[in-house]
Design a protein around this nucleic acid. Structure first.
Length: 751
DNA sequence: TCTTCTTGCACTTTTGAATCGA
DNA sequence: ATCGATTCAAAAGTGCAAGAAG
């Protein structure tokens, strides 16, 4: 279960940059960025074009198959996942607990990387905690503009990231759709999956093109405004230091609170010891306190219902509503919207910020049971005592089954425990490295094919964002008939993929229904246990993987750099290499598409195209998928360079940013400047039915979760010193509708 | 009426400034 | 004057519970 999925869904395309800050001509009065003011400023300040990385630069290539990410506190996450992780969201923003504590390896120590966190919906359902279990009760709320939290240390060298624990404990979740603090906005009672993205930045002004995305299925959670499952509350109290007061021996424990209440009632002036006020206090103390990690785990395990019949958690099989396909939601930095700190990047870089000790390193609140995912995946199989999960036999394209409406969809977290090899024995933690891709978000689950919520498939893949144009198309991946009028959009998008780097064209096809390759997920409704292999094939026409009709075309791939500090100009690379005097997003335009797993270059995959699918009991990969994988010719490891040199990228001439006023470090960015522009919200789509028959299960408010491009935006707040902190991923071309929204590839959101 | 969300409360931890002494 | 250790207070993070809102 401790699976780390890597998928090159990050799409950073220069073609979209021009839409924002980089234009062929001097910045016009209006920039399609938000906030407009900041965008205009940035547009005037930034170079007109982004430069691609130096062609055939071996140093720019980071072997993707070597990049590994470990979830340090995986066991803690597993404890929560077993019960059904709930995350409190508040208007002011709430930190995540457990937090994401990660270890990175395999990075080029000398190269710089950005580490980003985004959280994407797992399905299109809204949940309710009933009868001790979470049940899908209707369609999800309209998706809000996605935000991405950029680790404060970003950008930093690979040595920096690898020398310490990477923690995102500063990231906050909020349900305030108007949040201006840069928190990640989520809907309550929805299921989400955090994703970690590692983006290579050759230097301050150049994106190296290396993109790595990781998903830890055990980190998926349900958002709530108040804890629904008392087991989660118990776990949180016993695990979170800030909640110590609520423990049995804490001053804010139930006992103490009752005592205080009693004291208030009796006599407000009484000065009795609150402990003694409780008649049962001194003699009722529990001998053991669940404070240690061992105790916590014991607690979690003890509190778990019987495996076969979990008393709590999700029960997907009971879901009344068919989870519609959730498209992979690639992180599109092309539309990245940086809320703040952009101006500080240059300074930080110049000062060697990457060497600064991360504040997160000291964070030891959470356990450090690191789960390593390396190329030793086969070991999982050997060590795994869990039976293989039944592979979906259904077709790739999940079809909503109205008959299932009678059965509320519930999600059972319990299976994850058994399915996770690491949980049983951390020492035997399988090292997983795969050459296949998994989808960040599972396709809609088929109620008829219930799968464990967290099918703990130890399939964590390291995939190159790009593959060789010679990558054979896998017949097993067939794009489902497009629906909802998206066909044209998709088609147009496919055409664009052929020329991803041309001007303002929308290059990314990562989110096309194809991309989702949902076909590989028979159901999941849970994390891609056995995620379908996905890779960036934006520049190549590959067979479209089956996906739900809701699948939407990918987002644009523009990446706008609001500002660059003058310090950047002094950056060694920049000075030494004139070509570096420009932002390079060339390689960030990788497109994610479903493709045969065998196409992935990892050597280990050659003998075993999908070793990850075999060992884990949670592998929900359709047999057809595996077959296709095995049948697909193996691709040479070197066939898919991380940085795919694309001559077309050179269309962006070098730009000397020196003298650009906006690069002044004095320019600051303020989160408050980032607000939800109306245009960012889904627009009503008159073409879609406004009402659904009451007899039918509630439809998702949105047909699918298209990829939402990121937009970078300057944050003029002077007080913020953290560089590159937030990216706001905004909906692009999304038409909201009471029942859903869809991407409009023909138009582009203008902020 | 029920469910969900908001808000205030009490508690804890974290953080940074202030203080003190070597 | 500098440095390190200690103290203190403010800020921030918790869950709980009552009440409000839909």
């Amino acid at each position: 279960m401790l699976s780390m999925e890597m998928y090159p869904s990050l799409t950073l395309g220069p073609q979209r940059i021009g839409d924002c800050f980089y234009r062929d001509r001097p910045a016009p009065a209006h920039m399609p960025m938000f906030p407009p003011a900041a965008c205009d400023m940035a547009a005037k300040a930034l170079p007109q074009r982004m430069l691609p990385p130096p062609p055939n630069d071996p140093t720019t290539k980071t072997p993707k198959d070597q990049v590994k990410m470990e979830l340090e506190n995986a066991s803690l996450w597993k404890q929560f996942t077993t019960v059904g992780t709930e995350m409190i969201i508040t208007k002011k923003g709430r930190r995540m607990f457990p937090g994401l504590r990660l270890k990175l390896s395999g990075l080029n120590p000398s190269l710089r990387y950005l580490v980003l966190l985004d959280i994407v919906p797992l399905d299109n359902s809204r949940y309710r905690f009933q009868g001790g279990a979470w049940q899908a009760v209707g369609g999800a709320e309209a998706r809000l503009p996605d935000r991405v939290f950029i680790h404060p240390d970003s950008p930093a060298t690979g040595a920096h990231w690898q020398s310490r624990t990477i923690s995102f404990h500063h990231a906050k979740l909020t349900n305030n759709t108007l949040d201006s603090q840069g928190h990640i906005i989520l809907h309550s009672l929805h299921r989400y999956q955090p994703r970690i993205h590692v983006i290579e930045a050759r230097d301050v002004l150049r994106w190296g093109g290396g993109q790595h995305s990781f998903v830890f299925p055990e980190t998926q959670f349900l958002t709530v405004t108040a804890y629904q499952n008392n087991k989660i509350t118990e776990l949180k109290i016993n695990s979170n230091p800030f909640a110590k007061g609520f423990r049995e021996d804490g001053m804010n424990s139930k006992k103490q609170r009752d005592a205080r209440q009693k004291r208030k009632i009796c006599d407000g002036t009484e000065t009795l010891d609150i402990v003694n006020c409780d008649p049962c206090d001194s003699t009722d103390l529990q001998p053991q306190q669940m404070t240690s990690a061992t105790d916590l785990q014991a607690l979690a395990l003890a509190s778990l219902p019987p495996m076969p019949n979990p008393s709590c958690g999700f029960r997907p099989e009971e879901a009344p509503y068919q989870a519609s396909l959730i498209q992979e939601q690639p992180l599109d930095l092309g539309q990245a919207f940086i809320a703040s700190h952009m101006s500080d990047i240059g300074i930080s870089m110049a000062n060697g910020m990457q060497d600064m000790p991360g504040s997160e390193v000291a964070n030891l609140i959470e356990g450090s049971d690191t789960q390593a995912y390396t190329s030793n995946f086969p070991a999982v199989q050997a060590n795994s005592s869990f039976p293989l999960a039944p592979l979906p036999q259904s077709s790739f394209l999940p079809v909503p089954d109205s008959s299932d409406t009678s059965n509320p969809q519930t999600i059972d977290y319990t299976p994850i425990l058994s399915s996770s090899p690491t949980l049983s024995s951390s020492s035997n933690t399988p090292l997983l490295q795969q050459t296949t891709f998994t989808f960040p978000t599972p396709p809609p689950s088929n109620s008829s094919s219930p799968q464990p919520l967290l099918s703990s498939s130890p399939s964590y893949h390291t995939m190159p964002e790009t593959i060789s144009p010679h990558t054979p198309a896998d017949a097993s991946f067939h794009a489902p008939p497009s629906q909802s009028g998206l066909q044209d959009q998709i088609s147009a998008h496919s055409l664009l993929n052929d020329q991803p780097l041309q001007g303002d064209s929308i290059s990314s096809a990562s989110n096309s229904p194809i991309d989702q390759s949902s076909a590989v997920f028979i159901y999941p409704n849970n994390l891609p246990v056995n995620p379908a292999p996905v890779t960036a094939l934006s520049n190549y026409n590959l067979p479209l993987a089956p996906s739900l009709p809701c699948s939407l075309p990918t987002h644009g791939t523009s990446f706008s750099f609001p500002s660059v500090s003058p310090h950047m100009q002094s950056f060694p690379n920049m000075s030494s290499n004139p070509s570096h005097h420009a932002f390079n997003f060339q390689n960030l335009s990788h497109q994610t598409q479903a493709f045969p797993p065998s196409s992935f270059p990892h050597p280990s995959s050659l003998p075993h195209p999908h070793p990850s699918f075999q060992p884990s009991s949670c592998l929900a990969v359709p047999s057809s998928f595996q077959q296709s994988v095995s049948s697909a010719p193996s691709m040479p490891p070197t066939a898919y360079p991380q940085n795919l040199a694309n001559p077309s990228n050179s269309s962006y001439p070098q730009v000397d940013i020196s003298g650009i006023p906006q690069f002044n470090p004095a320019a600051h960015y303020r989160p408050e400047m980032v607000r939800h522009h109306p245009s960012l919200l889904p627009q009503l789509d008159p073409s879609l039915p406004s009402n659904l028959p009451s007899s039918n299960p509630p439809q998702s408010l949105y047909s699918a979760f298209p990829s939402y491009p990121l937009r970078l935006c300057q944050d003029p707040h002077p007080s913020l010193s953290l560089p590159f902190r937030h990216l706001y991923r905004q909906h692009q071309h999304v038409h909201a509708h009471p029942q859903g929204s869809y991407l409009d590839m023909s138009t582009r959101a203008v902020y």
